[in-house]
Structure formats: structure tokens, C-alpha cells
Amino acid sequence: MVAENPEHSRRYIQRFRDLAAGGTDLGGEARMIDAMVGRGARILDAGCGTGRVGGFLLEAGHEVVGVDLDPELIAVARQEHPRGEWIVGDLAELDVRGEFDLVFSAGNVMTFVAPGTRVEILRRLGGCLREGGRVAVGFGADRGYDFDAFLADAATAGLAPELLLSTWDLRPFTPASDFLVAILAR
């Protein structure tokens, strides 16, 4: 995406700064993730961007490691949330130290990755979990990744759904949902 549109990162950064300045609630994903773990949990933000969600979780008392392919977004995360560990890296080659209580991928990340890498990414996300840990993935419909295909890929990667929602604010998933938040476990 950055190769096709060199201004993408700067526009993305500015868009979320403008939303925050305008009072838009940008903490929905983080509040749900925070509620899923005990205080002081170790959390992996897969596709962390500028650390918008991970930064909230740091402030809530968690240990956060964020990974994103875009060095410009990681630079903002490091500047704005220096207590986190922010890594430039490809989720398809994810290699982070230690295990996590929760791994999440918000912001339609799974729709931006190369389709041929999806199962491997899900396998690697699941492989980062401590015993009893979970993976939370959220993305919208009509983005080139059908929900049923995602769930099949998750199963191939050894992950099973524990809960399917249609929003990060805990609304039930239905066949008519235009967004999926999948809580998965090994």
C-alpha cells in the first residue's frame, strides 16, 4: 500500500489525529481488549500502526509489544508511547520473544495482508499465546476477505472461535453483520 501510495502513512497519521482532536471515541477496541485480560497482562498488537490501541493498553497498566510493517507508523508509536515495545516487522514472519496473554489485530489489518500469508499469520499469532490466551481479530466486510474464509483460515491455523461479535462494543454477530470481531483460542 505504501509503495502504491507514498503519502498513505502521513494521511493515516493525520486522519487519526484529526478524529481525536474532534472528540471521536477511538478507544473501543482497547476497552474490550482490556476487559479480556487481568491487569498487567502481556499483549501483542499485531498491525499496531501508530500504537493508538496499544497506547491505551499501556496506560491501563499492560505490557504491550506492537508490530507493524510500516516504519513511519512505528516511529510515531515509539514517540507517542515510549513505554511500549514497537517493532518494524512482517506479521507473516513474526518472531517475537516470549508469550502473550492476548494477541489482537484491529483496524482491518487482516484485509491488508497478502492473501497467501493469512493462514501463516494466524498460525504465528496463535503460536505467541500463553496457555489459555486468546487472539482477537476485527475487520469489516467488503474488504476482500469473506468472514467464512477467515474462519476457515483460522481453523487451518489451529484456532477455534470462542466468540463472534459484530463490533468491538460486544454486539452479537449475525449473518447480516458488516463487521466481525472474532475471539479465537488454540
Rank of each mutant, 00 (worst) to 15 (best):
N5D: 15
E7P: 00
R17K: 14
R17V: 07
D18S: 13
D18K: 13
A20C: 03
A20H: 06
T24I: 14
D25F: 06
G27V: 00
R31Q: 09
D34A: 15
M36E: 11
R39P: 13
R39H: 12
R39Y: 04
G40P: 11
G47A: 07
T50I: 14
T50P: 04
R52H: 09
V53P: 04
L58T: 05
L58H: 01
G61H: 10
D68Q: 05
L69S: 08
L73P: 02
A75S: 14
A77G: 10
A77K: 09
Q79Y: 05
I87T: 01
V88Y: 03
E93T: 03
D95Q: 05
L102A: 08
V109C: 07
T117Q: 14
E120K: 06
G132L: 05
G133W: 06
G133N: 09
V135C: 06
A141C: 05
Y145D: 00
F147I: 01
D148G: 01
A152T: 14
D153N: 04
T156Y: 00
T156V: 15
G158W: 01
L159Q: 05
A160I: 04
E162F: 03
L165C: 11
T167V: 07
T167Q: 06
D169T: 15
R171Q: 14
P172D: 12
P172S: 11
F173E: 00
T174M: 05
T174V: 11
V181D: 00
A182I: 02
A185K: 13
R186N: 02
